[in-house]
Each structure stands twice: as structure tokens, then as C-alpha cells.
Design a protein around this nucleic acid. Structure first.
Length: 106
DNA sequence: TATTTGACCAAGA
DNA sequence: ATCTTGGCCAAAT
């Protein structure tokens, strides 16, 4: 399977209310391609709401930078922040509060 | 095959 | 705390 596909699979394991980082995803995949992970998210199978790869959704909005900052989102950072808030994650200035505690560890 | 492009990351003149 | 710089790597061109 292709690199991006493996990343999507790992991404699906992140539960609601938790977040992960591009770096963590790369490490979980056994690589250092942090940057390529970002690209994979950008081209994820969630057209606009399709959100499907296999049988589950790819919660790409739960992926943030290693510093806890929101880097990007197909529908805008604002939308991304709202989705996260709706799952119980506090966001302030495009940054996840209590970041360390919200991280999902593989 | 070669070049360009990012939703990255860590370190710091 | 904030901005820049160089290194990184898969994908698309």
C-alpha cells in the first residue's frame, strides 16, 4: 500500500476528543516523513464530507502540529477549530489547550 | 529521471 | 514569545 494510505489508516485510530500530530503519525508509520504526512492529509479521501477510506472515517481534523498549533484544513482553520471544540477540545489562538493531555498515543 | 511542492519540525546567526 | 532557516520526504508534474 501507498504511504498516504498507511497514514490514513493510522489516522482513523485517533478517537474523538483526542488529537495527534504529523510527527507522531509519521513515527507510527515507521518513517520521518513528517512533511509528507501533511501532504497525505491534504489529499485525504474526505472529498468535502465523504470522509471515507475503508469502512471508517478519517478524522483528519484531529491532526495538529507538534507544538499544538493548527496548521491547515481543507475548509479553513476556523472550521477545523470548531470541529475539535465540538469534541471537547479547547482551542485558543489556533492552538490546542492542554495539548500534552489531549495527545493520543499509539 | 529531474524538479517542484507542501496541512512539518527543530534549532537559533 | 515570535519569526526565519535549513533539512526532511513522498507525490505530483
Amino acid at each position: 500500500m501507498r504511504f498516504s494510505g498507511r497514514i490514513w489508516l493510522l489516522c482513523k485510530k485517533v478517537p474523538e476528543g483526542k488529537v495527534t500530530t504529523y510527527k507522531l503519525l509519521a513515527e507510527a508509520a515507521g518513517t520521518k516523513a513528517y512533511r509528507a504526512v501533511g501532504n497525505a492529509m491534504n489529499k485525504n479521501p474526505n472529498g468535502l464530507l465523504a470522509c471515507g477510506y475503508g469502512k471508517k472515517m478519517v478524522p483528519c481534523h484531529r491532526v495538529v502540529g507538534s507544538t499544538g498549533h493548527l496548521h491547515g484544513f481543507a475548509h479553513g482553520l476556523k472550521r477545523k477549530a470548531e470541529l475539535l471544540r465540538k469534541e471537547g477540545i479547547r482551542i485558543r489562538n489556533n492552538r490546542v489547550m492542554d495539548f500534552e493531555k489531549a495527545i493520543y498515543k499509539f
